[in-house]
């Protein structure tokens, strides 16, 4: 098999994102509409110029199919594909949209992703009651990743302070970004003092629900 790749075959002509935050006054349709309109504006096109859409959604309460896009954008019957691949669902929407253009099947497509975690009503990431094996233990998402941290600390001598530096850097970047969820600096001490979510990952080591 000859691997040709997609280098120089696809270009991003416009993009946008909503502001990160708790956004209680918006639903998933509002967010999708806002991001899509922004991207169309950025590219200088209208929704009539796109041929197809790929959308990344993980949780069923945000949307079970591509119709989530059609419901709000009213594309008039253009094909919409939903990708679902855990936290990489949005990434995979983008990847497959690129393949569609590279293949020559379409000229202009939109890749988007949407999730409205706040609307489901649970604390932490929802869903552990309803998916996975019914008997084997179901750690929370931070718990799954923190088991790797525990072992790495043990094997490589890393510490919570090493993780805290990542959180401090991320917050520092957020200060300068108007769409960031948190726009204040934190110190290493603050990060270390934060409440535990799943040892050794504290609150600043985990994604905020947005």
């Amino acid at each position: 098999m000859v691997r040709k790749g997609i280098k120089d075959k696809v270009a991003i002509i416009g993009c946008d994102a909503t502001k990160y935050g708790e956004r209680w006054d918006k639903n998933q349709y509002d967010l999708l509409f806002e991001a899509a309109q922004g991207a169309f504006g950025d590219a200088g096109i209208t929704k009539d110029d796109i041929d197809a859409v790929w959308v990344g959604i993980f949780y069923y309460f945000t949307g079970l199919s591509g119709s989530t896009v059609e419901d709000i954008l009213k594309l008039g019957g253009k094909p919409v594909t939903r990708t679902e691949n855990y936290c990489a669902s949005g990434m995979d929407a983008f990847r497959n949209a690129c393949f569609a253009v590279a293949s020559g099947a379409y000229d202009v497509v939109m890749a988007c992703g949407v999730e409205k975690l706040m609307d489901e009503g649970s604390s932490g990431l929802p869903g552990f009651k309803i998916f996975g094996h019914p008997v084997f233990p179901t750690p929370s998402a931070p718990a799954m990743f923190s088991m790797a941290a525990t072992r790495c600390f043990h094997e490589f001598g890393w510490t919570r302070e090493d993780l805290a530096r990542v959180a401090v850097k991320n917050h520092s970047n957020g200060v300068h970004h108007p769409k960031a969820h948190f726009r204040s600096e934190i110190t290493i001490e603050q990060a270390l003092r934060a409440p535990m979510i799943a040892d050794p990952l504290g609150r600043f080591d985990c994604c905020a629900k947005a």
Partner: peptide
């Protein structure tokens, strides 16, 4: 124990919170 975490988010009663998830 190969590795573990102490899960504050899901499940647990007084005597086993945070829940130790153990590999």
């Amino acid at each position: 124990l190969f590795t573990f975490t102490l899960d504050h988010l899901v499940g647990g009663t007084y005597l086993d919170t945070p829940v130790p998830r153990c590999v």
